[in-house]
């Protein structure tokens, strides 16, 4: 007699348990959907968790306006297929309303501005639990996250004063105005995500596969040429075969040289990789504690 789950199946089971706890414990949850692989995997897990019913909560996309067109097309297709509601929070609108001021200068990005739009969207729709694709292996501040992460009525995270989280007994109790961030795939690594996508044959945006693209070299990464970045004097666009390991706003997402044009090749490449995936993210490079600082304010 041998009753044993392999580790991917055990992670899947844990994540499905968390998704179901969210629906049971909260009134108005949502998935924060970026169009990246992690939020795609969560959406896939939600489809499994509530089958044969539809996913019983909306997807929320915080749109910086600086998108890869491929991400938006993928998002719309997925929403149609699943029959779920899509809610878009627009950073452009937040700027137009004068709630935030657009950054200027050489490395200007709308990354930090998203936090205001995100918190406004949560308040407008009265979401009490927002599920995100953050993983503890990604970044040192994220290694300290709970599955159920409490946020005060300003949306802030207090990492030094978190509720202890024991066994699989999740405490989603809160006062009016407060909310939770929930991270169903906390225990997955980048490799787990890719193995799972491969195993389950989950559709992902074409940007993850190697393709030809006009890019510039900036901060040790290949940054895509788009309408939203200004080339500096010494920067010259070149056409290279690259792929993206993570997907975010087009202004901060760097690509890597790659020939991996199938899921199998991506898995091989990830297994052999000597750099972390966030190494190509401009947003994490601003300081040693860039992620912790943003998370305390209410970032993803």
């Amino acid at each position: 007699m041998s009753y044993h789950l392999n580790h991917l199946k055990e992670l899947e089971s844990e994540s499905i348990f968390v998704l179901r706890e969210v629906v049971a414990q909260f009134q108005n949850p949502a998935i924060l959907f970026s169009g990246g692989k992690d939020s795609i995997v969560i959406t896939h897990l939600a489809k499994k968790a509530f089958w044969p019913a539809k996913i019983p909560f909306p997807l929320v996309h915080i749109d910086t306006g600086h998108n890869f067109p491929e991400t938006i097309a993928f998002r719309d297709e997925l929403v149609k297929e699943l029959g779920v509601r899509l809610i878009v929070g627009s950073v452009q609108q937040t700027i137009n309303e004068g709630r935030v001021v657009e950054e200027t200068g050489k490395n200007a990005s709308r990354n930090a501005l998203q936090t205001t739009t995100l918190l406004d969207t949560i308040e407008e729709h009265q979401f009490d639990a927002c599920m995100g694709g953050a993983r503890r292996d990604e970044e040192k501040a994220r290694a300290k996250e709970r599955f159920f992460s409490h946020r005060d009525d300003f949306g802030q995270w207090d990492p030094k004063n978190q509720r202890p989280e024991l066994w699989n007994l999740f405490n989603g109790k809160k006062r009016p105005g407060e909310h939770f961030r929930v991270f169903p795939i906390s225990n997955w690594t980048e490799m787990d995500i890719w193995m799972y996508i491969l195993h389950e044959n989950i559709a992902i945006p074409s940007l993850y596969f190697a393709h030809q693209r006009d890019v510039i070299r900036r901060s040790n990464t290949w940054l895509p040429v788009s309408d939203y970045i200004t080339l500096r004097d010494n920067e010259i666009a070149e056409n290279r075969k690259i792929r993206f390991r993570t997907l975010g706003d087009i202004t901060i997402t760097g690509g890597i040289d790659s020939d991996a044009d199938t899921l199998e090749k991506i898995v091989e490449e990830v297994a052999a990789s000597r750099q972390t995936e966030r190494g190509n993210r401009e947003d994490d490079k601003r300081s040693e504690t860039a992620m912790e600082d943003r998370k305390k304010e209410g970032y993803f």
Partner: peptide
Amino acid sequence: MDKIAYEEMELL
């Protein structure tokens, strides 16, 4: 990494 081997892995 071998796909099969990865799928047989246990979690500790």
